[in-house]
């Protein structure tokens, strides 16, 4: 039988991973809102964020903050490249959602395999950002990396909210998601907004990957599980609702952590997918209700 005295500790670590799922889920929403596309290459962005930072930092001696910034920028550029090379040609042909999902999944696999060839199959990691003993609060150990993850995620969510509600570009992206044709009629360059959405969610994914890598590891094949978790977060939150996706991510992270205590680590994905099925059966529009 599981030892339930660990619950608070487990919840704290679930919170950290939940934030990361939430960020990935937001990435799904940003692209979905701009285009109606579900981008399954999202996981590749997460993997590459951690991987590129590791390569720059561990192999080339670039300071960690700089390595992280370069990695985020590089992954954002890759996002734009995927939009141009894979998504736009299909979009212009009015490809169905099913085709888009397959095409982005294919892009994910290509990136994964190229990474395998380039850096091998050994897991890589990053040092924690602040190397100090964890804070003890009421018998619960709170590592500094967790504070980075939660703080960084909340900061990003706040910045995104400000971007979408205060800036003209952010409002224009929302306008495209509400009514793409009307947006075009205002002279809003809808296709550039799509490229921007890919850049933004790629950067988000990379940021999430960099935050989580010190507590776990990264390897060529971590992308798909992260993408699935982020996708579940987005569904649970109400697809197309960035804030909902973040809540969905938190919920998923906490439930997964509890499932690990209750049933063992082997069943963590069973728990996650059960949550997905449960929501699809009972509340397919998610916590906040789907955006469309």
């Amino acid at each position: 039988m599981a030892d339930w005295s660990y619950i608070p500790q487990v919840l704290v670590s679930g919170l950290g991973i939940g934030c990361v799922y939430g960020l990935i889920g937001i990435g799904f929403c940003v692209i979905y809102n701009a285009s109606g596309i579900v981008n399954f290459a999202q996981g590749a962005f997460v993997m590459l964020g951690g991987m590129i930072t590791h390569m720059l930092f561990a192999r080339n001696g670039v300071p960690l903050p700089l390595a992280a910034v370069i990695a985020i920028a590089a992954v954002a550029l890759l996002g734009v490249a995927i939009e141009r090379v894979v998504v736009r040609p299909l979009w212009n042909r009015k490809a169905t959602m099913f085709v888009m999902i397959l095409a982005t999944l294919a892009a994910q696999i290509v990136i994964e395999r190229l990474t395998l060839i380039a850096v091998g199959d050994q897991p890589k990691t990053l040092p924690v950002f602040t190397d100090r003993p964890p804070l003890m609060i009421g018998g619960v150990a709170i590592g500094f990396q967790l504070i980075w993850i939660v703080g960084g995620s909340i900061a990003i969510v706040g910045l995104l909210a400000a971007f979408f509600s205060l800036t003209k570009t952010g409002k224009a992206m929302r306008a495209c998601s509400i009514n793409r044709e009307a947006a075009a009629l205002q002279g809003i360059p809808v296709s550039r907004m799509l490229a921007l959405a890919f850049a933004l969610s790629a950067a988000l994914g990379a940021f999430a990957g960099i935050l989580i890598t010190p507590t776990q590891y990264t390897a060529f094949n971590v992308g798909v599980p992260f993408a699935i978790s982020g996708f579940i977060a987005a569904i649970v939150g109400g697809f197309g609702r960035p804030f909902g996706a973040f809540l969905g991510g938190l919920l998923l992270g906490l439930l997964q952590a509890l499932a690990i205590v209750g049933f063992g680590a082997g069943l963590k994905n069973v728990a996650a997918l059960s949550v997905l099925l449960l929501f699809l059966f009972i509340r397919p529009s998610g916590i906040l209700g789907a955006a469309k």
């Binding site: 003209k168 409002k171 224009a172 929302r174 306008a175 509400i178 009514n179 009307a182 947006a183 009629l185």
Partner: peptide
């Protein structure tokens, strides 16, 4: 073709 969930002010701005 209004951006219905957005404010009047935002619609004008866009």
């Amino acid at each position: 073709g209004l951006f219905s969930p957005m404010s009047v002010s935002d619609n004008l701005e866009l």
